[in-house]
Nucleic acid binder design. Structure first.
Length: 954
RNA sequence: GCCCUGGUGGUGGAAUUGGUAGACACGCAGGACUUAAAAUCCUGUGGCCUUUGGGCCGUGCGGGUUCAAGUCCCGCCCGGGGCACCA
């Protein structure tokens, strides 16, 4: 008897909702907690495709497993609902982002429900709802009211900083700041409020500053660095330029060290940790100041190789460096100006593509404080304005780029490191002995670095310094669909943040989403929003998409709290996320911001844990197969001419363009035999009517104007398509909707199949062809409960053999779930069921707990069987079976016997046979004698329960 | 260039600490049932040789350690991802 997956699924979906089966309580605090989180989706109009659920299925299996093990499991879902796509859609269609977003959320919820996830929907978080973003705004104001104290190594309040300034100035303050001057208490107290606030903004964790930003004219907004790919916007591929604007920033660099060292204690993949480490980009070195001849200016450089100071023969500034104008000599002025102009005109892509060294001498000299030699000052575009101090001391002997530059322009090269003792070392290894460096001579590089740093500090010409690649995070977007920044300005530009009782600052309604083009958001046009009582004006920038996702995992703990972002008791109970599953595309944006916000809230005493995500799994992507047919460039008798992929290849035709076709027309999709048949041609023509009269030619025949004329006597009518692996995207017409697969095969089969495809972290192309294996498995399992159409189980005691198979399966599945190897769990189920069926197992004592074992993977079918077995309550709230070793004990062990490491025989010995008996008996076996005859036996290795190896001479 | 990954049959992939390579599936071939097909079930399936006992080769390539290497070490090659004039 077969089961009807559609009616079973509909029944239990409804039942689970009506009975709040998956609702989690914060009052169960006597139970141990476990928090399993998915990265919440952005609800795009395209809906979910088969790639999205991969991670959700894995986390759901794990959550269900932990629940059955007796944990109180928090497994929530929500939506990251603010962001550019909804606004772009609104610009094109006039549909309000709140409307399209909520429509999309409805679709997403339905698709997720089809998959049978055990989310507690009563905890749903939607980032664009005022009751949620009230707290996003509040955290922002909290960041504004704090600075990072490097003495305590944590965030401290600005008011305490103001007190310190008033009492003792800033000389004792060690903080993450861009303010470099010192002042006394008297000087501070004499400053005006505007001056004071200006200084404080250099300390605040949320602050405004003028900076170069990635301005995208086409989108009318500023983009974060990670939203710019190869000089164009990540969304839409529009050009991006550098523009000076006053912007809100978050001082994430204050937490650079804690973000870096915090990685050590996280169970994240090495790949992901490496990505964050690279992004933070910590490098130790020194900053050094060089006097400039005939000027009171100094050039400050950052170097990781202060030891090579005796080899520093010239200076290079970035073309945008502040001192360029001041230091350029009159003779060099024209050349320098032309160079700077040419650099600015070229886009970043052009600059990178060239890879050529270029630069100009500016006609000024600095002095090397160690050699006292003159160092010509150059500008060159290989020196970046945004890194370090925007200036370098060039050491052509020990830096490859400096070397190329010096060689090209004939600058002096002095060898200062003898690397002859390290013939295989690269420059990056920083090894060797100092030469030509006076008192440093003979020192190892490492020691020389320490020595130079010491001397430099003594002579007050620099200091040891740590530099980071990571920049402070731009936090303003000139767009409508985001959280308003809860700030207003008075007529002097002084900032007021909205207090908690006035939050949320709601996003006003409008129907005009066009960017203003002058760099302001559409909010700037809404007078009632901009003008506040008391002559204040509001900030009109909104927060970036990453704001809402930086703390949503905390809100799930207590989602409807209106007094706090979450109650203290909820935070103390749920603590942190035990398992986080999501895509690697968020490796540096979302995952870094979340860690930053979490650390900040921890510093302020709101959270019990410093790191938000203990264990992280990155699921791989499910790729699509792009199916194309070849369109020849030349028409045939005025009609479009398509040709079979095999013919194009065979004939070596180059004048053919692959045209992606909708994969639903393609038969044997994704295989080598993928093709269009007559029905396929007809669907294609209906889909693209401009090809109504096109000729479709392949080796078997020709399809033209609705008729198939065969060549020769072939009965086949198929046109092979070209298959390549790529993204699943609307653009390639290859999106597979999970709803369709579920309708055909069922949600349980879909879930197990996605898990069966391979390791969760690996990317793989979608291939529906082997889904039949999983489908057959579930049918077989179901059939074990029936005899001739009626449900029937035996209440007899299980046999030793049955228990052995069952406990073997428990052992394997438990072990593999714990290491997130879900594909091998599915294999283990198949093996277990195959073996139990072989011995016609129909015992309740086996099949009942086996159903619980399977429940996390196939929640619908197991729930139905649970009910058929007459059990009360849900199978998902029962208990996971325990594995007992005693059932696995073997009577005899099959030993492989090797001669010189090569397996030659297999022989059964009773379990527990002593080593010396094994040796003796093995040697007496006929098969063994054949190999040992007349040879000296040098050694016998016996590994109990594993193998026997006999080593013979010759 | 740097960092991180991965490379195993026709295909997806298995293989705790080094200990029977290819589990589990798909596909393919043959068979049963059927008027036929679908579905289902059974058997075989890494390659080569073979006197049908078995033998030789085999986890990207070349070396090495070991009684024993897909697994460890050294040197390469190729695919995927990230960063990239980062001083």
């Amino acid at each position: 008897m077969e089961f009807n997956h559609q009616s079973i699924e509909a029944k239990w979906r409804k039942h689970w909702v009506e009975n709040n089966t998956y609702k989690v309580s914060n009052d169960n605090q006597d139970k141990p907690k476990f928090y399993v989180l998915d990265m919440f989706p952005y609800p795009s109009g395209a809906g979910l495709h088969v790639g999205h659920p991969l991670g959700y299925i894995a986390s759901d299996i794990y959550a269900r497993f932990k629940r059955l093990e007796g944990f109180n499991v928090l497994h929530p879902m929500g939506f990251d609902a603010f962001g550019l796509p909804a606004e772009e859609y609104a610009l094109q269609t006039g549909i309000h982002p709140s409307k399209s977003t909520s429509d999309n959320i409805v679709q997403y919820r339905a698709q997720l429900a089809n998959l049978g996830f055990s989310f507690d929907w009563s905890r749903e978080v939607v980032t664009c709802e005022p009751k949620y973003y009230k707290w996003t705004q509040w955290i922002f104001t909290l960041l504004y009211a704090n600075y990072f104290d490097q003495n305590t190594n944590k965030a401290e309040s600005i008011s305490s900083l103001v007190e310190t300034f008033a009492q003792s100035g800033n000389s004792t303050v060690k903080a993450a700041t861009t303010f470099e001057d010192t002042f006394t208490a008297a000087e501070w107290n004499a400053k005006s409020e505007i001056e004071k606030q200006d200084i404080l903004s250099h300390y605040r964790l949320a602050f405004r500053q003028v900076g170069y930003v990635n301005w995208c004219e086409a989108l009318g907004t500023v983009l974060a660095n990670d939203q710019v790919i190869d000089g164009v916007s990540e969304r839409g591929g529009h050009p991006v330029e550098q523009k000076a604007m006053t912007q809100w920033y978050l001082r994430i660099t204050a937490y650079a060290d804690r973000l870096l060292y915090g990685l050590d204690n996280l169970e994240w993949s090495d790949a992901l940790k490496a990505m964050q480490t690279n992004w933070i980009g910590r490098s130790e070195g020194a900053s050094l100041r060089f006097d400039v001849e005939g000027s009171d200016q100094q050039v400050e450089v950052f170097t990781t190789r202060p030891d090579t100071i005796y080899g520093a023969t010239y200076i290079v500034l970035a073309p945008e460096h502040d001192l360029v104008d001041q230091l350029t000599s009159p003779e060099q002025k024209t050349e320098v100006e032309e160079y700077v102009k040419s650099v600015k005109m070229r886009s970043e892509i052009e600059r990178m593509a060239e890879k050529q060294v270029s630069g100009v001498f500016i006609g000024a000299y600095a002095t090397n404080p160690f050699t006292n030699k003159k160092m010509p000052i150059w500008i060159g575009e290989y020196v970046l304005a945004g890194y370090g101090t925007g200036a370098i001391m060039a050491v052509p002997s020990d830096d490859e780029r400096d070397n190329i530059f010096a060689t090209k322009f004939g600058l002096e090269i002095v060898d200062v490191v003898d690397k002859s003792k390290y013939p295989n070392a690269s420059l990056a290894d920083k090894v060797g002995f100092m030469i030509n460096s006076e008192d440093l001579n003979g020192l190892e590089v490492k020691d020389a670095i320490t020595e130079v740093c010491k001397q430099v500090e003594e002579r007050k010409i620099g200091k040891a310094k740590i530099n980071y690649k990571m920049r402070d995070a731009n936090f303003g977007r000139q767009r409508y669909w985001g959280e308003p920044i809860p700030v207003s300005y008075d007529k002097d530009g002084l900032v007021t943040t909205l207090p908690l009782e006035n939050l949320p600052l709601e996003l006003p309604d409008t129907s005009d989403f066009k960017p203003s083009g002058d760099g302001k958001s559409p909010l700037a046009r809404i007078d009632s929003f901009v003008n506040v009582d008391g002559g204040l004006t509001r900030e009109t920038d909104t927060m970036p998409a990453v704001a809402g996702s930086s703390w949503y995992f905390l809100r799930y703990m207590d989602p409807n709290n209106d007094e706090a972002f979450a109650s203290e008791s909820a935070l103390n109970y749920w603590q942190d996320v035990d398992l986080y599953v999501g895509g690697a595309e968020h490796a540096v944006s979302h995952l870094l911001y979340s860690r930053f916000w979490n650390k900040f809230l921890f510093d302020k005493g709101y959270l019990p844990k410093e790191e938000p995500f203990k264990k992280l799994i990155n699921q791989g992507m499910i790729q699509g197969v792009i199916e194309s047919i070849y369109l020849l460039r030349e028409k045939k008798d005025g009609d479009y001419h398509f040709m079979c992929a095999a013919m194009v290849e065979k004939l070596g035709i180059e004048d053919a363009v692959p045209l992606p076709v909708h994969v639903s027309f393609v038969s044997d999709y994704g295989t080598k035999k993928s093709h269009l048949n007559i029905a396929g041609f007809k669907s294609f023509i209906k889909w693209r009517p401009e090809y109504e009269n096109a000729i479709f030619e392949c080796s078997k025949g020709v399809f033209h104007k609705g008729r198939w004329s065969k060549k020769g006597d072939s009965e086949d009518s198929l046109m092979l398509t070209k298959s390549e692996i790529g993204k699943m995207s609307k653009r390639y017409y290859n999106v597979i909707n999970p709803d369709d697969v579920i309708a055909e095969h069922g949600a349980d089969v879909f879930r197990m199949y996605e898990m069966f495809l391979g390791p969760i972290e690996q990317s793989k192309p979608w291939d529906i062809n082997s889904i039949s294996g999983v489908s057959k498995f579930l049918k077989k399992y179901w059939a074990m409960f029936f005899k001739e159409e009626t449900f029937a189980l035996s209440d007899d005691e299980p046999t030793k053999e049955e228990l052995k198979i069952f406990h073997g399966t428990i052992k394997k599945v438990r072990h593999d779930i714990e290491r997130f190897s879900f594909n091998t769990c599915v294999s283990a189920f198949m093996e277990g069921v195959n073996n139990l069926r072989k011995i016609n197992c129909d015992k309740r004592a086996i099949l009942e707990p086996f159903t619980v074992l399977l429940a996390p993977f196939a929640p619908f079918v197991t729930e139905e069987l649970w009910q058929l077995m007459g059990k009360q309550g849900s199978v998902h709230m029962s208990q996971y079976p325990k594995f007992e070793e005693k059932y696995l004990v073997e009577d005899s062990i099959s030993y492989p016997i090797s001669i010189n490491g090569k397996k030659r025989a297999l022989h059964d010995f009773p379990a527990g046979t002593a080593k010396d008996v094994l040796e003796k008996e093995a040697l007496e076996l006929e098969v063994v004698k054949k190999w040992t005859e007349g040879k000296e036996i040098k050694k016998i290795i016996v590994v109990p329960n594993k193998m026997i190896n006999i080593v013979v001479a010759g």
